[in-house]
Amino acid sequence: MKSATTEKVLRRDAAENRQRLLDAAAAVFSERGLEVGVDEIARRAGVGTGTLYRRFPTKEALISELVRQVFSDFVAAAHAAQTAPRGEGLEQLMYGVGTVQATNRGCLSRVWNDDETAAHKREFRTILGELLDKAKSHGRIRSDVGLTDIDVVFWAMRGVVETTRGITESGWRRALAIMIAGLRPGAEHLDATPVTEDEFDQVVARFQPPARNDPDSQSGGVS
């Protein structure tokens, strides 16, 4: 019979292996995209493929957990931004989201359409709306900026992050600083209409990957 101490060590080792696999997957996917095989992820984590499959029965399960962690980080950044003074929380959050995106380049295409993160998405956008209202009330952001305008900024940042992968880590920061400058009060009138919530939903739906019916996508044999 296993002692309580032995079981505790085993649970700790399992948790550490799981996190090593997630860290390795984030790094490998960021470098080479989602097409990379799980064998490479296991090698990077320093564990066997059998260990990987015990933690994540399919490659899809591994990707889904990475996406969940990304949105969990988004929500954590949003909560931290709520304590910022003088309406500065929105900008703090925007830079926080950029940082999370930059360290999780490989799975960005899946962030907005994973069903497992629906609750995180709702919480994140609720806080985002509150921070936007505070930024407006403190005169940091122009009054005609809407929530979907900030969504578009996040999408634009994602594009810069993905485009500059492996070349520069500061490109998205410069782009975001320019976009925030354009959100300041006093800028000229905006003729273009904002993206509507319905259009936002349609864009998110467009990111949804096609259903995969091949057996490998549902089994440990995925590469």
Score class of each variant (00 low, 15 high):
D198Q: 14
T5A: 15
D115I: 01
T168Y: 08
A81H: 15
I150D: 04
L62C: 10
V97L: 05
T168A: 15
L90N: 05
I150H: 04
R32T: 09
A192C: 06
A211Y: 07
K8R: 15
T99I: 01
T58E: 06
R140W: 06
A156K: 02
K8T: 06
K59D: 01
N104S: 14
T193I: 02
V75M: 04
R43S: 10
A24T: 01
A187T: 08
E123Q: 13
A192Q: 10
R18M: 05
G89M: 15
E40R: 13
E16A: 14
R174W: 12
E31W: 06
L93Y: 09
T5Y: 09
T148G: 03
G159E: 04
T49D: 12
D151M: 03
W155D: 03
D201W: 08
I127F: 05
G221S: 15
L66Q: 14
E116R: 14
A45I: 09
F56V: 04
D151A: 07
H189E: 12
D201T: 03
D216E: 11
P185R: 07
I167C: 02
V47M: 12
E162F: 02
R174Y: 13
T99K: 12
D191V: 07
D13I: 07
I141T: 14
K121E: 09
A81G: 13
F56I: 04
V222F: 11
A61N: 07
F124V: 03
W155R: 05
T193M: 10
H120R: 07
R105M: 08
H79E: 15
D151K: 01
V160C: 04
E31N: 13
I180M: 13
Q92F: 11
E35M: 06
D151P: 00
M94L: 13
G139K: 11
